[in-house]
Design a protein around this nucleic acid. Sequence first.
DNA 1: ACAAAAAAACTTACTGTTCAGTATGTTTTA
DNA 2: TAAAACATACTGAACAGTAAGTTTTTTTGT
Lengths: 200, 200
Amino acid sequence: MSTAKKKKTEQKLLKAALSLFVRKGYNGTSVDEITRTAEVTKGALYGHFKSKADLVLKLIDEFKARFVHEMIESTEREKLNALGKLHKILTYNARLVLEDQALCVLPTFMTFELKEHDKFEIALKNVYQEYKVYITKIIEQGQKEGDFKQDLDPELAALVFMSLHDGILHQWILNQEVVEGKEFVKTFRKIFFEGLQNTV
Amino acid sequence: MSTAKKKKTEQKLLKAALSLFVRKGYNGTSVDEITRTAEVTKGALYGHFKSKADLVLKLIDEFKARFVHEMIESTEREKLNALGKLHKILTYNARLVLEDQALCVLPTFMTFELKEHDKFEIALKNVYQEYKVYITKIIEQGQKEGDFKQDLDPELAALVFMSLHDGILHQWILNQEVVEGKEFVKTFRKIFFEGLQNTV
DNA sequence: ACAAAAAAACTTACTGTTCAGTATGTTTTA
DNA sequence: TAAAACATACTGAACAGTAAGTTTTTTTGT
């Protein structure tokens, strides 16, 4: 039986790895650095994880659990119309960004640095796929209910939604010191739902 | 005096470096790999560039010239209203993505892998800043002309525009094989300018 | 209840490899 | 024929992973 201490060591290692990966990249982070940050030694790391790459896969699992499964569950708990659901998702995500920024950034940085590693790519596409299917269903619902424009392909609209999401995170990382997060998100919502153009 | 051959070697090295950087990341790419791809030797590389990092800085210069300066110049050549300008920019960018996808992706991948390297970060922020100032002016113009919603902060709206842009690129990289680019961009435009919601 | 034995968690010290960069020599161009 | 462009062969440092030994925790026999 695993003790609480074991779990704690694992968590320390994952936390250290995540923080370093998103700051310095996967290849820019050494295993020694991870163990130093987590305040354990190399042997301990290789007792818990079978390789450096394994750390990333475990982190993706964590992302999936918190950012996809929990999000869907939380959104489906209440009976909302499609518009309400999308708003709920945006609020949920905004909270997670504040709570655990590093984890939020993980898939994006992985897309760019690790897209040639098959194992990572498969795990990552899997996560995005699940997310996309869910958003697509919501957009279809919104079209059926007459709230959303009918002449949009739901799947492509879902991709645009996700694009916005990724892009916002990206720009927010670059402009964190300068831009007020709340106002930024408000602007984003207005444009996404109502458009930039006047409707006179 | 530099010969045509020298320029050619430089271009071969930059092209090889770019292609490898965006596929395998900066730290995931070795100098030997770059020279092998460019079909020159190490001595040649270090004759043209003072370090591996120098390659990245030169690539950012190239990005800036083609993606910011040329884009602005091309957009300003015709007298367009704000809406026309934004459409022009999107068309211009779409073309560049097809022409030189690797270069388009460069700033995004840099944001995530190299954000702790001061030199890179400064060069990168500089590029985004110039882009942002330009888009902000267009949005202000659009508001003055009455085409765009008045209650949006022009700078934040510009950031949303750029976010969309980055996000679209990100999602397109992930879904290239599956998604039809033209339709994706069309959907994006419709949502960005007119919104997802019906205006009944 | 409590030691002795077994197992799990961890540390230390090391290995072979790969890396960015360089020093020196050779070829090509002007 | 001089100087610019390039090639070769090397260096010391950093790297992921491991083998062997030590400490801590859990299980077991009485």
